[in-house]
Design a protein around this nucleic acid. Sequence first.
DNA 1: AATGAATGAGCGTTCATTCAT
DNA 2: TATGAATGAACGCTCATTCAT
Lengths: 210, 210, 210, 210
Amino acid sequence: MSTVEVVDEEGPGRVERRRNRKVLDILTATADVLAERGYHQTNLDEIAERLDLTKASLYHYFPSKDELVTACLEWVGKLVNDRLMATAQNREGTASERLTALIRVQLDSIVREHPQMAQLFLQPLDWPESYRERTKELRKEHDEAFRTVIRDGIASGEFVVEDESTAVHCLHGAMNYVPVWFRAKRKKDYETMYETTAASLLRLFRPPAP
Amino acid sequence: MSTVEVVDEEGPGRVERRRNRKVLDILTATADVLAERGYHQTNLDEIAERLDLTKASLYHYFPSKDELVTACLEWVGKLVNDRLMATAQNREGTASERLTALIRVQLDSIVREHPQMAQLFLQPLDWPESYRERTKELRKEHDEAFRTVIRDGIASGEFVVEDESTAVHCLHGAMNYVPVWFRAKRKKDYETMYETTAASLLRLFRPPAP
Amino acid sequence: MSTVEVVDEEGPGRVERRRNRKVLDILTATADVLAERGYHQTNLDEIAERLDLTKASLYHYFPSKDELVTACLEWVGKLVNDRLMATAQNREGTASERLTALIRVQLDSIVREHPQMAQLFLQPLDWPESYRERTKELRKEHDEAFRTVIRDGIASGEFVVEDESTAVHCLHGAMNYVPVWFRAKRKKDYETMYETTAASLLRLFRPPAP
Amino acid sequence: MSTVEVVDEEGPGRVERRRNRKVLDILTATADVLAERGYHQTNLDEIAERLDLTKASLYHYFPSKDELVTACLEWVGKLVNDRLMATAQNREGTASERLTALIRVQLDSIVREHPQMAQLFLQPLDWPESYRERTKELRKEHDEAFRTVIRDGIASGEFVVEDESTAVHCLHGAMNYVPVWFRAKRKKDYETMYETTAASLLRLFRPPAP
DNA sequence: AATGAATGAGCGTTCATTCAT
DNA sequence: TATGAATGAACGCTCATTCAT
């Protein structure tokens, strides 16, 4: 029962496709509720209700609340990581341009697409311990996407940091905090925020004035 | 029952002093449990047990769990804000030196003194809505401590930012994220981390190389 | 839908034979799970899984869990009763020899062949009331097999009892208790246990020393 | 929180006495429901209802259903064992008289006083594994009460058995089965049944006629 | 005949809150 | 002031049963 594997919409049979579609629906609803209420105020009844299902039906797809939430985080995490990886591996442009692109992808993901994603990185104390382990790999991949570009920048002399890890952590902390303070009124606001925030954060890596 | 007012150890009568001392004990225990377990895994039984009290007794001092936690956050928040304010108002030294000092105070507070404080700023989704409002004032004060110095720096030309608010938010996000990734093994580690982190974050405000 | 009738492998048509074979498979699997887990820990999913079926498919053969379990008990009960009856009706040998044979058949059935059978007689309180009634006939037949021989023994003076019913109940209680305490390590152990237990229980009927 | 210790009605303070009395009430109600419905059909709501309590209130006295049931079995088991021990240690009379007394005590306990006690020894498969371990000590004590007298009888030549363990197991099996088949109509019936059953079972140990 | 999906009813457990003493 | 007792509301989870395909 591989419900926790990231879902592949291309199942062979009709039945599997139906099931996968349903799993996707459930993951989407779960992501929504998580985003609105947070983990502890997310209960299975609410998720089920949004899907016009009963709580018990969710257990046909996921064996527990924790597995459901984990699957949800892994699913969204994978989506984000894929975008980041694709962006990171594009070696055109300066390190600054590439890092800016990464920051924009990340901000777009956690602010607009999947507001709850930030939680994945913030790792609140009162989430079940299991999540930390289950999403370790995701966080590692995520980190690597950024480190790849940053190390390229350092190697080429375009970036200068006192301590790489510290700088990267500060970058992540600052990015993941954005959903807390940013509220868009118009669509244009997102773009402006991405621009300004990326410019600000780039300074963590660009050499300072003497 | 103005339990949410910050407690003043100097009450007029003997009885009130006794009560205030007890309230302080409760707040301390609450802060400890919050720091260890996080909000949702913090239950009144555990707080009471640490105080050799019963759950019911807590209700003589705080009318609800939310009030208790709020009072706790306000108490700790006040302590931090006071330290920050004192630091911010000391106008000796360059803006960089003063901002560095602020960052060190903040990191020391949320990493070493009151690990749960960071939650106050991260505002997890699944905390009761009320906290956000109740701690608004605290966050404003806190923000102002930093803004005071940063504006001085900008005014004097020592600091240069594209957007002040964005830079400040990034600073806060990065600082509050530190408890998530930093683990000290020796006492000395704190000092080193303060140093490196402050140096890193200062770049958000120092003029970049052309 | 006479699923509770004992299944006769010789159905007229091909289709019925197929069906009857399937019913037998289901009963066998049910008996296994009942024996391993006991009634309340037996769920339809587990039975279905062992048959490479789904829970829903079981409902094509039995209208409810209770009917399935009842049918299972009746099936196994019939098997045991048939063996007992055949043994009881063989009038060769002394009453002691014939009773010993019955005891061995019964022990062999409930300890080795169908460990769950004992439950049929122990009638645990928390089984649905219906079982008691549905298996009444079986218990009666079962009882009669033993009574036949015992009465013969009493009539011939070989057996002497204060109260026949009491002695028979004691016999049953003692036999059905064997699965609780007996654990075989080698095949030979069964034989030894049959021997010793039968010898012990025979005393309930043999005339005591004066 | 020693709720599982056998309750001592003599607590020092008034509060403790009140609590112990309540614990006893709960154990009694639990024993009743267990006796009527069996373990799996016993739910906390029913126990609570009989006590004019809510399910949640039970958790002030016992941390889980399993602990409650275990405590109940241990409580009743202790009562029976104490009676048995006292009877066994009285060395007056012949071994037959002493064993008869033990059998009467046991029958009285499981048929009249605590009908559910028999379950303790029958160890149904579908009870949680934990019970088997938790009540091991009780069963051992129980067994020893009988063995003491039986060994005395064997030593003095009054009893003769092929295999002591087998005989004792048969005795237990037969005794614990009594609640299944015996229904008293008048008070006198108990006495008659004790008499007849004890006489019958004694044969397991008395030397058989040659 | 077979099954995936769905569900209702039920259960054990947790916990903030209330109240009489 | 302190507390033991009690509780209602909620939640995660299980499972026999039903039904459309």
